[in-house]
Amino acid sequence: MIVDLKKFIGRERPTWEELDEMLKRVENQAVTYLSLDEIQRLHYLYERTGAGLMKISTFAAEPNLVRYLESLLTRAYAEMQDVPSRTDTWSPRRWLFRTFPQTFRKHFRFFLAALTLTVLGGLFGGGAVAFDPDAKAAIVPFPHLLENPSERVREEENKPNQMLATARGRFSAALMTNNTQVSILALALGVTWGIGTLILLFYNGVILGAVLFDYVRAGQSVFLMGWLLPHGVVEIPAILIAGQAGLLLGQALIGWNSKESVNQRLRSVAGSLVTLISGAALLLVWAGLVEAFLSQYHEPIVPYQFKIVFGLIELATLLTFLVFAGRDGGPVGTRSRASGRARSC
């Protein structure tokens, strides 16, 4: 049997047009509200168009028409399988005070892994400088950290950085963007089964350990705390959270103790990855501002005690936020998708 294409199109056109209109309406809505009748109608139109496609594919494969119907049905399929994921609106407040801390806690073991690795890197860096002071030049990539700590402290205290006074905004912006880029890299390297993230975190730890040991050995612990604590207590956890996201991505790819397919695992962690990296970016904005406007000012302009106390208050606030925020609300939304139903090949 060969289909009379003209008659077929004439008969089915209203169905396709109605489905197209309905899809446009649904696609343009951030939140989908369809009545039961509308859902039933959508399903009917989808099934009828599907039957039409099967008929035309079998008996009259006019390529443009087949492509049109496939495109229409793909859109309809996406909407019909995905409606539950858009039943609520996104709220910045809810995201910040509930979703972000809950996601952090949900995947805490990856944060712990990132922290452990950084600490190990720190011990290695500190140990390397302890045994061989010349190793500092090979480990630390920042020229201003290579000079003698005592000399640097003397310079900073006696001759405040005049350039910084007129370029605080620029400096702050450069810090924010650079640190955010490093965070994105820590997440993105998770695609190497987490190996790239592990190396990045360890290397960060090595640098940090080498610098810390160098300043402590030189008897500049107070300066070090006054310099690093105000921004470091936010910046370092932010990088660790980005590392947490990278390790989560790596685990989703490896799939230890998981019976799900790699696609299902990646799908289930996608929301968490975005939440963690967004949270890290937000923390880095704060850290950038603090570093440019407070950390770089030393005694006698800003007393070290003030900077240290400020840093400790920040740390306590951040810990309280990450540990306790969102505990009273419901769990992080695990938006189910009917991914198991479809089979792509």
Partner: peptide
Amino acid sequence: AEGLRLRPAQIVIRNLL
């Protein structure tokens, strides 16, 4: 890749990576 609706998280991840 499975014909479902493209989610914001997917867009963010593919672009960050």
